[in-house]
């Protein structure tokens, strides 16, 4: 019996759910980048504000998806074991912290918000990891993949809204390479999991290859921007390369999450480990 026989494509979490992971990842990445920028004396308030908007947009999309939106506050009831509750609790502190950081321009509050953002992103990663019904999410390598993708998205986005100096290009390149390593580890892990065979196939389809190409192209463009900055190329060239690279780094992350949540999410197949011989008698029937 092939494991895929009874596996089906989950349709309960759609683009709106993917939007939560996109907003949460990019937003958290921007929070972290903004905190580093604040510490380094670089502009950070706009990045923080955009990060905040991303997180709020992501959570709003989830709110639109749930079946009983007017009971949404019930989400806070189970912090003991539910990563969704924990995500909501962290978000409840993260949003005001980000707001204060962006409005007041406080470096200290921004640093606190960045730590909370890391927690928020970690909760999102663990949410997927805890989904035992979806082999593609159950993979342990999903955690570093979600974390590094968020960082790559945020640092890439910062190149669009912040400075394009060497430091930030190095940071974005580092985050992109980190995501690359995490992606390769995830794909290798997925390949070793028979239950994830259908997900592996999805990652070989043209849309997934397109996302992958965008991810690699973003890395190359950021590296070229860095080289241009080191070689003191005209600012317009650096700006164009960094902007395009940053945009691709963010968009590739978004594309990856859309693939992961909406296309590669197949349920675990119902399978039996043995073949019964039909027609044998049953002992101990109830009398």
């Amino acid at each position: 019996m092939t494991p895929s026989m009874t596996s089906r494509h989950q349709r309960n979490w759609d683009l709106r759910a993917a939007g939560n992971f996109i907003g949460g990842g990019t937003g958290s990445g921007l929070f972290v980048t903004a905190a580093l920028a604040a510490a380094a004396g670089a502009p950070f308030r706009l990045a923080l504000a955009i990060g905040l908007a991303c997180v709020i947009a992501g959570l709003s999309l989830v709110w639109l998806e749930i079946g009983k939106p007017w009971r949404a506050l019930n989400v806070f009831f189970h912090p003991h074991t539910s990563w969704m509750t924990r995500e909501a609790i962290v978000a409840g502190i993260l949003v005001p912290a980000g707001l204060i950081g962006a409005v007041a321009g406080s470096t200290a509050v921004t640093a606190v918000a960045a730590v909370l953002a890391c927690g928020f992103l970690y909760c999102q990663a663990l949410m997927l990891r805890a989904a035992r019904g979806i082999p593609a999410w159950r993979q342990q390598e999903i955690v570093p993949l979600i974390l590094s993708t968020g960082l790559a998205e945020g640092s890439g986005f910062y190149l669009l809204v912040g400075a394009q100096t060497s430091n930030w290009l190095v940071f974005a390149l580092f985050a992109g390479l980190l995501r690359e390593v995490a992606w390769l580890a995830y794909r290798a892990g997925l390949g070793r999991t028979p239950a994830a065979a259908r997900s592996v196939a999805v990652f070989g389809t043209p849309p997934a290859r397109f996302v992958r190409a965008a991810q690699l192209a973003g890395l190359v463009l950021i590296a070229l921007a860095l080289a241009a900055a080191v070689l003191a190329a005209p600012p317009a060239v650096i700006l164009a390369l960094a902007g395009a690279g940053g945009a691709l780094a963010a968009l590739a992350g978004w594309g990856l999450k859309v693939m992961l949540i909406t296309r590669a999410a197949f349920t675990r197949a119902l399978a039996i480990p043995v073949i019964p011989i039909r027609g044998r008698s049953t002992h101990a029937r109830q009398s």
Binding site: N12, W13, I66, K68, R71, S82, M127
Partner: peptide, 9 residues
Amino acid sequence: CIGCSYCIM
């Protein structure tokens, strides 16, 4: 229940 579908996953 809020219908988040997390249990389904």
